[in-house]
Write a protein that binds this DNA or RNA. Structure first.
Lengths: 143, 143
DNA sequence: ATGCCTGCAAAGCTTTTGCAGATGC
DNA sequence: GCATCTGCAAAAGCTTTGCAGGCAT
């Protein structure tokens, strides 16, 4: 039950927050911008302002319920924080985003940081490429 | 001679472009925002508009003379493209940026991409940590 | 009942663009 | 001389903030 996540974060259980959580949960791994979420709300006839979407997402980020990514070009995108870490690979043709985790890469990152005299706190790895799926070449895919 | 780089890129050798290249070359690895460069120009009494800085940087990026990074929080930063690729580690306390290259990480990235059915075009890896230098703990260091 | 939320509109920031004049070749 | 470039100012995103009213608890 997501409403408990809200309570645990010290946030009141309000309709905008619940709806936004639902939309994020229903995005099946797609990464949504504030605008994406705003439009999704409009589609389901919820009268929630864009400013609220931003505010809620910022609160969710502070509460570690979501992660904010900057990918490329100004617009931030958000995804539910499922707990376990992963990195991203993005298709430059169709915009599809896949997630992955490679222990070897993770380990070597720690090694590099140590070698340079840093203690690593977090990291951000994005691969840009082209996927060879037959349904790729044009436009973002609906899930 | 940097003016040749400009010519090779099909760009006329103008004062703004030369000055901006010089500033980037003299930044000793520090990553500069458009605003940083603009202020540096003002300091040396060059009357060059911020819009021009942005335009020139965009042209330089297209000509692969510089790389644009998005690091964190809205503002893009730029560095001279020295040819060989590297990644970044950033100190969350003092903002210091170090560069590194780890062949193991590079190789595994390619492997991961292949496994997922992508051909990798480029990537972006940033480690965030805390450096333990005695001169670190507060504020960004002037070079 | 009270304090946290929300909507709206306005402001803030970074970046881009239109246009008339200036400059490199 | 001509095309490209620049400065200025205005516009265009994306995101944040102020304020008055609304809602969860």
């Amino acid at each position: 039950m997501e409403t408990n996540d809200l309570r645990k974060a010290g946030l009141k259980v309000t309709l905008p927050r619940v709806r936004i959580l639902e939309i994020l949960a229903g995005s099946h791994g797609r990464h949504l911008s504030a605008e994406d979420i705003y439009r999704a709300l409009i589609e389901q006839s919820e009268d929630i302002g864009l400013a609220t979407v931003y505010r809620v997402l910022t609160q969710f980020e502070a509460a570690q319920l979501v992660k904010r990514h900057h990918f490329e070009g100004g617009t931030a995108v958000f995804e539910l924080n499922e707990g376990e870490h992963h990195d991203h690979i993005i298709c430059m043709d169709c915009g599809r985003v896949e997630e992955f985790l490679d222990c070897g890469i993770e380990r070597r990152q720690t090694d590099v940081a140590t070698r340079l005299g840093f203690s690593i706190e977090e990291h951000n790895l994005i691969l840009y490429g082209r996927c060879r799926r037959e349904n790729c070449p044009h436009r973002r895919k609906r899930s």
